[in-house]
């Protein structure tokens, strides 16, 4: 089958603004991934095309792109799912560095604000081994452990488009992962951070993040649970 790719192009060393270029790929398969098509263009049509990729198996989160207007991983999007005419653009809300590559620093800056690491200063258990928790306690935050930090959620959020000082769904998911961990002892600090003006109150429950997440994390639900925690104080 024939597939036409319309790709966002921008080279800051040459271009004053962005433009789109189209590439026709003959003999594509409906089971080809969009990443395969991008590799084809880079290999056979234009070696200057720039995009991020790493594992190519939906785990590293490097190749999140806007494909036909929706955020998804290029390595998980199949031709049969997105059609024969495919528009590929960089993620919205982050500065374009070149072609499909965006500057992820604002995203990671927000991520770091919620202290996304395990905090427990209490002495280890008497046997000196790991801090145990029940399967139920582990299940409480299981969904939010699946995040691969691809930024598909945050860059699909209208509140983040308007202002990148909003923590964004990914940072709130990271906060959820530790706030509801029975072994963690910094829930109060994180709740204070996520309740700032640029935090939970900026979420208008548009559900774009939940729709965009390639790991199918129930992000809006997780954010809702953090909101409820500010009311009830319960983080278990």
């Amino acid at each position: 089958m024939q597939v036409t790719l319309k790709i966002f192009r921008y080279n800051p060393e040459v271009d004053t603004t962005f433009h789109y270029e189209s590439y026709v790929i003959e003999n594509a398969q409906e089971t080809d991934r969009v990443l395969d098509l991008l590799e084809h263009v880079k290999g056979y049509n234009d070696g200057t095309l720039s995009f991020r990729r790493s594992c190519a198996h939906g785990v590293c989160g490097s190749d999140a792109l806007r494909i036909n207007g929706r955020n998804m991983l290029a390595c998980k999007a199949l031709v049969r799912d997105v059609g024969e005419k495919i528009t590929i653009e960089p993620l919205l809300g982050l500065k374009v560095v070149k072609d499909l590559i965006v500057d992820m620093e604002p995203f990671f800056d927000n991520y770091k604000k919620v202290l996304p690491w395990f905090i427990n200063d209490s002495p280890l258990p008497a046997d000196g081994r790991e801090r145990l928790q029940s399967p139920e306690q582990r299940a409480r935050f299981d969904d939010t452990t699946k995040c691969i930090m691809c930024a598909a959620c945050t860059t699909s959020c209208p509140s983040f488009w308007a202002s990148d000082d909003y923590l964004g769904p990914a940072a709130l998911v990271a906060a959820h992962r530790f706030v509801f961990d029975s072994r963690d002892e910094a829930a109060a600090e994180r709740m204070e951070i996520v309740s700032e003006t640029s935090g939970l109150a900026r979420c208008h429950t548009a559900f774009n993040c939940t729709m965009a997440c390639p790991r199918e994390i129930q992000i809006t639900k997780a954010i809702g649970e953090l909101k409820m925690a500010t009311i009830t104080g319960r983080v278990e």
Binding site: A188, M191, I231
Partner: peptide
């Protein structure tokens, strides 16, 4: 497995003007 209750006191749960208005 024993687990101690994890309920944050009112002044430690991020209940500020933003969340109150929410």
């Amino acid at each position: 497995m024993a687990s101690k209750p994890r309920t944050l006191p009112l002044n430690k749960r991020g209940m500020n003007f933003e969340m109150f208005m929410w």
